[in-house]
Design a protein around this nucleic acid. Structure first.
Lengths: 203, 203
DNA sequence: CGCGTTGCTGTATAAATAGACACCATGTCA
DNA sequence: TGACATGGTGTCTATTTATACAGCAACGCG
């Protein structure tokens, strides 16, 4: 997608990101030039154009300090990845599935959350999980009766309540409009990706 | 700590913080004026001076967009106070009401959350807010039709949907088993403590 | 070889921006 | 009563800033 940056370009991008993080506002052309010892603001201008062309920044024309970082860098620690739609066949935490990093500590949940998964549909509405809600997930392959799990059936990832009887598993929705999914462990592969440990909703 | 802001000042500070969060750069005086309908950039200028005087922002003189938030976005850091039962008559954020500090950034919500309030009862169940859920609250005295608000009526703090017709306000539950609370602003005092901006549930 | 990209210098200018000065109305505090 | 904060309108200007134009040198690609 975005062409790789030259070392110089990377250096400049890093500096800009650092500036935004520390000063709260992007630099001007002349500030960039001063920082790198350019004698002409146009050196900065052309670097910015190159960076914009490669898609790592966006320039708002005609605005003072109109530089925006395409991907806000600065993932330092207490962040949980937000997983949106899971691409068929890919591991849940593959980079392509991560939409955003949310500033919150997984330890706020017990057991701790490893990531947040956006829930689609109203199949868990009676458990107070609405369409678009973020399910806090603890990665573990173990589930007990009645727990809310993130399960992978073939290429599909779903959120349901887990019920097991011997070699048969029922994945039950929390909504009378849905019928339970029956899985025979000898016939189909079922992977428990994790356990729901909480819900986060943003309006 | 920081001197208390007037509602108008809080509103302007919130708007600036939101801008910084979303656009990556602080606004200019004319942008503030445009957003609030001021006809003169000087209205924004004097508000900024007032905010700087109270220590919630810092101004870099002679720089375009030289506004820095003293405490990023007016939110103290990476922790949100969890407010449980609110003692009668005390301010919501009084230390006696804070049960715990949760490791999450208020910026995960938009507008940013200032604290979490434990919701009691099932009066908001149809909005997906269950007994014991934590409501993320953005402090502001302003509410629009239908928004979920934290309101104080006399000594009681409640979470309801806000509806206003002239001097009469209805606080509606999201549960058919409850009847709406009618408030005549000329008879009773109603304080909007904040706006619900999200929900956090821990199992 | 010519062509495009990178990485600069140097100059110029229109537009964006901060911020001064003057002024007004309202409320509060002592 | 006067002083002071709040919340504005209106105008003007010095500075800051983005960005165009004209060049130059080095490099890799086909």
């Amino acid at each position: 997608m975005s062409a790789s940056l030259t070392p110089r370009q990377q250096q400049i991008l890093d500096w800009i990101a650092e500036r935004v993080r520390r000063q709260g506002a992007p630099p001007t052309r002349q500030e960039i030039s001063a920082a790198f010892g350019f004698r002409s603001p146009n050196a900065a201008e052309s670097h910015l154009r190159a960076l914009a062309k490669k898609g790592v920044i966006e320039l708002d024309s005609g605005r003072a300090r109109g530089i925006r970082l395409s991907e806000p860098a600065g993932v330092s620690g207490d962040y949980l990845p937000l997983v949106g739609r899971v691409a068929a066949g890919s591991p849940i935490l593959a980079a392509e599935n991560v939409e955003e990093e949310l500033g919150m500590n997984g330890q706020s949940f017990s057991p701790p959350a490893h990531y947040l998964l956006r829930v689609r549909g109203d199949s868990m509405i009676d458990a107070g999980i609405l369409d678009g809600d973020l399910l806090a997930v603890h990665r573990t392959p173990e589930a007990r009766q009645g727990q809310i799990v993130v399960a992978r059936l073939g290429e599909e990832v779903t959120v349901k309540r887990f019920h097991r009887r011997g070699r048969k598993v029922q994945l039950r929705a929390a909504n009378p409009a849905y019928t339970a999914i029956e899985v025979d462990l000898d016939q189909q592969e079922l992977v428990i990706e994790g356990l729901g440990v909480g819900v986060l909703r943003r309006w």
